[in-house]
Design a protein around this nucleic acid. Structure first.
Length: 992
DNA sequence: CCCCAACCGTA
DNA sequence: GTACGGTTGGGGG
């Protein structure tokens, strides 16, 4: 090693833990072997070996080593037996990956270093010393704070997951001390993870301050008597020995005896076949392809190597992989690289076969993200538009400055078309990116001039509008609602579209994410460029207009490309699964409806919220004072942990339930019980929590969502977030605005109609019980609904033989709880909890209920059976909800899935009904001549909220009620009438 | 800085 | 007992 050489030291043991938690779980498809951390490790190594210069490391390594911990028996353990004593066993999915990562290192032709009795950190420290003594530079690939003491001018750290280099200023910024004082700082603070004691009560801030004042640990200990704060002074004097011991534990050794010297760490060229054989064994298709290409290896000709999950002291040496000890080694199957399947003409294929053939074909073809065209002028754009018109099919995607379509500015858009003249599977896809508003400069106040050679926004829209609004050309997008809303703000109303996200949702609700990356992975076997790799993440993130256009082209055009490929696979699958109707009647038409609702937003009175915030703050403060008084000390009331310590530790109250982490629960239920037993404090806590909840979640947060231009609040609805078919609302969530308590309802008074208007709220009465009566065909329920009888009273009367007239409220309350319980897939445990009765008594109720309503038991049993057999259940309109875990061997998991499967057709059918009402609503209002006067704003599962001109209120109430009550027709004539209550008022509280 | 657990708001 | 999303505290790197 000489000056100018650069040694990379990878903290292998640290990486695996971090990668395991940071990366999504990944398993080998053939056998479920967990390989997520190994995958992250391999990708990181490959990137550093081939491309370190383009990362924030900025240099190419000449020397390279991967360092591991040997075992837990180290010199530190001898020094301090409790060292790392509170470490729990690693997660079971992680265990097999330890061995695989060592094997990966060998496959990469990299030295794999470990030394008995020392930790990886000591070895790293030793090599770093050796290299710098020879004049070389060092980069430690880790973000572990324990290694920060090594940072120098010529020793850097590198966080590979964040692509961030850590130098001296970074250490100072983060810890308040330079790297060489990190040892003293850690000696003072200790480390609960490694069980290093430190000085109690001293955290990083205090430690940095003390070191700033006294220089170093020794001086500090010598002059501890001078510290002003009494408690701190005592602590330090008392724990002097602990601090010194901690220092010994924290300080890294730089004299570890090493078998391999620096010259043994010279970076060797990659052995293509050897590495490919390993990567293939783990099914890392993308990386296999990359490596094969870069090393000129014919991947198809390489046989996957056998891999082993063995490791540890017994597995050391060259015999790795031969081991026959405890765990049976997981062996890879040998597999050839998929080739583009020969496919017959589309006309000869069934939809199912076409979908599969396309998926197979796509999986065998690499997507080349460098081959996309950047469209720089109108002639080129016109050629693409002509191509789209010619084929009648184009994938469209926008790139913007924000995830919020109400705030986003258009930066560019991408198009993809399929070449019809290629084979019928449509494998040949061409894509382009059209930059419009990319900026140059550093993003400071002055930077940010438009990059040259971009089509101006106006010109682009002028060309794009006729294409997007022409229903004869099918536009395909992923999560179209976003692009629809954005384009609508630019005066373009997209017509004639499909949405791959909604297609996936219809096909497989309940089986995971429907985001594009996940779909691409699932259907195409392709990992698209990650957004954060283009625009950064966290602090280093930039908006898309600051992204380099070449990079933006690769990313954006790939999105359109992938979207079109997904469409080619998913569209025929909708046909073969007979889900076209669900998609076309319940999903796709809702996109423009929701986009318009979001665009309209609702008016929120800032003054009301601000006044409420003030009131809540005062009341909460008063409660806090009383709470501290009763507790005898002040503490963070918002911390369940601290609260638990006070209630069940200090005050010795009887603890009730435990949380799943073993903490005492301080839930409202537990506190209510304690209050009922005569303890004054718990009641105060409950009240305090209510007030602070209202303040932080609603009165403080809502004003921040008021749009700067429209002055209204625009929520975002997700169409594909739930398993059952419900919508969800976020940013802000307007589906959980308080209503149950008087205090909470005040928040609803802030949701108001603009002058000259009213808010109309229309909600379905008992829609889920009506759906249940319909699907389970329960005569008593059907009759009661037909006659408009109080359904809970009827239930109570049937069960307990009590006449409805003069029924005690407690009896009705119990029947009501049972009715709700049925919808939720009742259990004796849950019902007992709800009613505060014994489980046996709850069991008796359920038994009696089933005797009276045997149709419900039949329905529940048949629904469970259906879910078990088919893996999914269906709503009355044919929407599917998948429950793959219903066959779990874990009884708890199974029971949970059974209850969910029972609930899904009920909740989901109700969701379908209101979807149908929403889809028809604008037409109905328009037919009634109300299009201009009544605007639908919000949906809250069984309720729709409109803003209506005063004169149009009566007519709107009528139209809305009628549309909602008849929403199931004509597709379905329900056995039970649907009932809607609607009213109008100035604010949401009074309208509801 | 990110993630999870606990808690709690709605239907 | 179902379905969600948001806030806080706390633990981790």
């Amino acid at each position: 090693m000489k000056k100018g050489d650069h040694l990379f030291l990878v903290d292998g043991s640290g990486f695996i833990f971090r990668a395991f938690h940071a990366l999504p779980p990944l398993t080998r498809k053939s056998d479920g072997l967990p390989v997520g951390a190994v995958s992250g490790f391999c990708n990181m190594l490959w990137k550093l070996i081939t491309n370190a210069r383009d990362t924030s490391v900025g240099v190419t390594p000449t020397h390279f080593a991967v360092i591991f911990d040997y075992s837990s028996k180290t010199f530190r353990k001898e020094l301090f037996p409790e060292y790392k004593a509170n470490r729990s066993a690693p997660p079971e999915e992680l265990v097999p990956q330890f061995g695989l990562i060592r094997q990966a290192t060998v496959a990469f032709n990299l030295p794999c270093i470990e030394t008995e009795g020392f930790e990886a950190d000591d070895i790293i420290a030793t090599y770093a010393r050796m290299a710098t003594e020879k004049g070389g530079d060092v980069t430690i690939i880790s973000s572990d704070k324990d290694l920060m003491q090594l940072v120098r001018d010529n020793v850097h750290m590198y966080d590979s997951m964040k692509d961030k280099q850590i130098g001296i200023p970074d250490v100072i910024e983060k810890w308040g001390v330079p790297p060489e004082k990190m040892i003293d700082l850690q000696a003072l603070t200790g480390d609960s993870v490694d069980n290093i004691p430190g000085v109690p009560g001293i955290g990083p801030k205090t430690a940095a301050q003390l070191l700033e004042e006294y220089g170093d640990l020794e001086t500090l200990l010598a002059r501890a008597g001078e510290i002003k704060q009494a408690k701190r002074r005592e602590n330090i004097i008392e724990n002097r020995e602990k601090a010194l011991l901690s220092r010994q534990l924290v300080e890294l050794r730089t004299d570890v005896p090493l078998d391999v010297d620096l010259d043994g760490l010279v970076l060797e060229p990659q052995d293509g076949p050897k590495l490919v054989a390993f990567l293939k064994a783990l099914d890392f298709t993308t990386l296999t392809r990359r490596v094969a290409e870069a090393t000129g290896t014919d991947a198809a000709a390489v046989e996957a190597v056998e891999v082993t999950t063995e490791w540890g002291a017994d597995a050391h040496g060259p015999d790795v992989g031969e081991g026959g000890a405890a765990a049976a080694p997981a062996t890879a199957r040998v597999e050839t690289t998929p080739k583009a399947a020969p496919v017959a003409a589309a006309g000869a294929l069934t939809p199912a076969a076409l979908s599969s053939a396309r998926a197979e074909a796509f999986k065998g073809v690499k997507i080349d993200t460098e081959g996309y065209e950047t469209v720089r002028d109108l002639d080129a754009l016109d050629r693409w538009i002509a191509l789209a018109r010619e084929t009648g099919l184009v994938a469209f995607d926008t790139e913007t400055t924000s995830l919020d379509p109400m705030l986003a500015e258009l930066v560019g858009f991408s198009l993809a078309v399929a070449d019809n003249r290629a084979d019928a599977t449509g494998v040949s896809v061409r894509a382009c990116y059209v930059p419009i508003a990319h900026k140059a400069g550093q993003g400071d106040l002055l930077g940010g001039g438009l990059v040259e050679n971009q089509i101006p926004l106006g010109k682009a829209l002028e060309r794009l509008k006729p294409l997007l609004e022409d229903a004869a050309v099918l536009k395909v997008a992923q999560n179209l609602k976003y692009d629809y809303l954005l384009m609508k703000r630019h005066g373009v109303e997209i017509a004639g579209f499909d949405d791959t996200m909604l297609m996936s949702y219809v096909l497989e609700a309940g089986t995971g994410s429907h985001g594009m990356d996940a779909l691409s992975e699932r259907w195409l076997g392709h990992t698209p460029i990650a957004y954060k790799d283009v625009a950064g993440s966290g602090k280093g993130a930039v908006s898309f207009d600051m992204v380099d256009i070449a990079r933006a082209t690769a990313y954006a055009a790939e999105d359109a490309d992938v979207t079109l490929r997904l469409w080619q696979v998913l569209k025929p699958r909708l046909v073969s699964e007979q889900l076209v109707t669900v998609y076309e009647r319940l999903e796709r038409p809702l996109v423009p409806v929701l986009a318009r609702m979001e665009e309209r937003g609702i008016s929120v009175d800032r003054q009301i919220l601000s006044r409420l915030s003030g009131e809540l703050a005062q009341k909460a403060a008063a409660f806090e004072a009383e709470i501290y008084e009763l507790a005898g000390e002040s503490f963070n009331v918002g911390s369940p942990k601290q609260l638990g310590d006070i209630l069940f530790g200090k005050m010795g109250l009887p603890g009730g339930a435990k949380t799943k982490t073993g903490q005492w629960s301080t839930s409202a239920q537990v506190l209510e019980d304690l209050a009922a037993a005569g303890h004054p404090l718990p009641r105060k806590i409950v009240d305090w929590r209510q007030l602070t909840k209202l303040k932080s979640t609603y009165t403080d947060a809502l004003p921040g969502f008021i749009h700067p231009q429209t002055k209204r609040v625009h929520t975002s609805y997700s169409l594909a977030a739930t398993t059952t078919g419900r919508l969800s609302s976020s940013e802000p969530n307007l589906q959980n605005i308080p209503v149950r308590t008087a205090e909470g309802r005040k928040i609803r008074t802030a949701f108001i109609a603009t002058p000259g208007h009213k808010l109309v709220s229309a909600d379905y009465s008992q829609i889920e019980l009506r759906v249940l009566a319909h699907v389970a065909e329960i005569p008593q329920l059907t009759r009661a609904f037909a006659e408009g009888i109080d359904i809970h009273a009827m239930t109570a009367s049937e069960m307990f033989g009590v006449p409805v007239e003069g029924m005690p409220s407690e009896v009705r309350r119990r029947a009501k709880a049972i009715n709700f319980g049925i919808i939720y897939g009742i259990s004796a445990f849950g019902l007992a909890n709800q009613l505060g009765i014994e489980r046996s008594e709850a069991g008796d109720y359920i038994k009696k209920y089933f005797e009276r309503f045997p149709g419900i038991r039949d329905y529940m049993e048949s629904t469970k059976a259906e879910a078990r057999e088919k893996g999914y259940v269906e709503t009355i309109f044919g929407r599917r909800a998948y429950y793959p875990e219903i066959r779990s061997s874990n009884p708890q998991v199974r029971a949970f899935n059974e209850r969910a499967a029972i609930n899904a057709p009920i909740q989901g059918s109700a969701a379908d009904i209101i979807r149908r009402a929403m889809i028809r609503m604008e037409g109905a209002l328009s037919d009634a001549g109300l299009a201009e006067q009544a605007r639908m704003l919000l949906q809250v599962h069984d309720e729709l909220i409109f803003e209506v001109e005063d004169e149009a209120v009566e007519a709107t109430l009528k139209t809305v009620t009628h549309t909602m009550e008849n929403a199931a027709m004509p597709a379905l004539d329900m056995r039970v009438p649907l009932k809607v209550d609607a009213r109008a008022a100035h604010n949401w509280d009074e309208a509801h």
